[in-house]
Design a protein around this nucleic acid. Structure first.
Lengths: 253, 253
DNA sequence: TCGGCCTGTTGCGTTCTGTGCAACGTCCAT
DNA sequence: ATGGACGTTGCACAGAACGCAACAGGCCGA
């Protein structure tokens, strides 16, 4: 829409493939050298482009800094919330959003069940790592050494007979979760409560958060809950798409 | 230098701090809303800016993709080479550049000593991990678990009486190297050869490569070689600065 | 339900800014 | 020396970006 900016921004992907000199940039943009020079200088002043000693240009450090800063300021909860609400409207059960932080998994958002019987949980509360479906997803994405180290370090309380008994069983479960791309907790924490969960991934493909639907047996059986899996995964994928900023084309209304 | 591009690029750091709507962007740029809209649309078309469902703008995924691609296409050797040559001209000794890759450390560039007595080495040759100064620098920067796992897995050949004897001693040495920001190998690989080395860091602060100066005892003593340390570190820092694209202001001649 | 308000969007005339040209400077290789 | 390749500068013109003003749509309170 804006010719000058358009041209300037076209330089960035061009330089991403490797350094280029003024002539090359001008040619590939289809503009005069003096024009390319002015654009490059502007990019340079903003630190997006760096001029190396051989007079060739390449992408600058500011780009990395910006990308990193944007990463940190991305608020999953803010983006996910409307999706959680919509999911809750569709299935009626309690919906949770959780993140991993410093060897813990925390609920950071929640939409309560619309059924009279609700499960207890609190935003900000640490999650039972060894059994919760969201914890499995988040830990399954850690680098292998860290995952192993953490699994060894954990306690494995027997909340119910179906709780994960020990580190070996847990690592095996994490491997399966990693493989299948979703997780469940069928009565592993509280006898009568089941969950299904799916991961939210960032632009780098890493799991940034996990989302789950929970319901007590008295409302739906475990099998019934599992039929919601496709819906849960679709919702998580939608959040991932928005969170990672991946949208083929966004229409301007 | 180019007003339009200048304004457009000023939007990026503005959005890095968090999402903003059209009015906020226009205000902070000091331009009319319609102008801000046009700029944002152009940024959007290039994927640098993403428009979330609440009509607010934030930095887009393309930024990450660009940064990543640029990272991958950065060639340390190309950037470092002139610096290595200059260092060689200043001190006369053999200069090496090495990187870490898949549990190995490889020499990727070399400038031969100008003294008649040269040490043997070959570009592409794997380095003796347990003793070489460059290897210590590169391994010292690995995440702690990976560093420990690798140290346990290694053999510790007794090239000389001063070779690192075992994993514990090695980890201790790595900790010191990490602390002091440089490394040495005083006759640990070949009895009569000493090295001092310094790290090259990328934009993220991680060690991307390591550079060393090596000389046999018959040319200079270990003590004399160590006097070169400031020069070696300065050179490595210069490479780091250029590699990471960090330059406060680059003059336009 | 209506009416005001806020925010984003559009079309257009004016003007300022970006453009390409041509000439110059510099470095390197012949 | 001399040619060529490349980056750089100043300038006149044209066109592109600017801001204005009017429109559209959603939201909230009356």
């Amino acid at each position: 829409m804006s010719q000058t900016v358009d041209r300037a921004l076209s330089i960035l992907p061009l330089l991403a493939g490797g350094p280029a000199d003024l002539g090359q940039v001008a040619d590939r943009l289809g503009v005069h050298k003096s024009t390319a020079l002015r654009l490059l200088r502007t990019l340079h002043e903003h630190g997006l482009v760096y001029r190396q000693s051989d007079h060739r240009y390449r992408l600058g450090a500011r780009l990395f800094a910006l990308a990193q800063e944007a990463m940190e300021n991305l608020d999953v909860r803010e983006i996910a919330h409307p999706h959680l609400v919509r999911l809750n409207e569709q299935c009626g059960h309690t919906v949770h959003l959780a993140v991993y932080d410093d060897d813990e998994v925390l609920y950071i958002d929640k939409v309560d069940s619309r059924y009279p019987v609700r499960m207890y949980s609190r935003i900000g509360k640490p999650v039972a790592l060894t059994v919760a479906a969201v914890a499995k997803l988040l830990l399954a994405d850690l680098p292998a050494p860290q995952r192993r180290a953490l699994a060894e370090k954990l306690d494995y309380p027997s909340y119910t007979p179906r709780s994960t008994p020990n580190a070996d069983a847990y690592l095996q479960e994490l491997a399966r979760v990693r493989e299948q791309g979703w997780a469940a907790d069928l009565g592993g924490h509280e006898e009568s409560i089941n969950c299904v969960a799916a991961p939210v991934r960032g632009a780098d493909g890493r799991v940034a958060a996990a989302m789950s639907v929970s319901a007590p047996n008295v409302v739906v059986t475990a099998d019934e809950l599992l039929t919601l899996l496709p819906l849960v995964r679709r919702t998580a994928d939608a959040i991932s798409a928005e969170y990672s900023g991946r949208t083929p084309v966004t229409e301007h209304p």
